[in-house]
């Protein structure tokens, strides 16, 4: 069979459609309600406020298997002004929980860096709970070129 222009175009269209088909049998991705519930549980009834916490993540992650993220919270880290814990969530992963960091007075500053998996383009959410119970939130959308949950 000779490769006519029409046939070449048909092949190309088929190849482009294939990755989309592969996504269908995957397990259901985390519903937005799961994320909302986790935020509510972590916040313990408080409304998360903007500010204090800063989430650093790339705008575009080429490889969803290892996306560097960093968090830092403005705090003196003394008895009166202390960050208890920081939770990271990804609302488009099969399970939204990523990690929870716990800080102490010996931490010096409430900052940490790690690497995470992102299944697809989605929001990464960082929540900080202060020792006095107040909760702060930061959010960033990360575009993912190749998803990181294997298949």
């Amino acid at each position: 069979m000779t490769l006519t222009r029409r046939r070449a175009l048909a092949l190309f269209a088929g190849a482009a459609a294939f990755p989309a088909l592969q996504l269908v049998p995957r397990p259901a991705f985390a519903a937005a309600e799961d994320t909302t519930k986790l935020i509510a549980d972590f916040a313990g009834g408080k409304e998360p406020q903007a500010g204090k916490i800063k989430l650093t993540a790339p705008d575009i992650a080429e490889n969803g298997n290892t996306v560097p993220i960093a968090i830092s919270v403005e705090s003196a880290m003394t008895d009166g002004d202390m960050v208890a814990s920081v939770m990271i969530l990804a609302d488009g992963n099969p399970r939204p929980e990523v990690a929870t960091f716990h800080f102490t007075a010996l931490s010096g500053t409430a900052a940490a860096t790690t690497r995470m998996r992102l299944a697809k383009t989605q929001n990464v959410i960082a929540l900080a709970k202060m020792a006095d119970g107040s909760v702060y939130m930061d959010k960033k959308e990360v575009k993912v070129t190749i998803g990181g949950c294997g298949g």
Partner: peptide
Amino acid sequence: VFSCDLDPAIS
């Protein structure tokens, strides 16, 4: 000093 609970989304 510092501790962390990890979920499967960590690389």
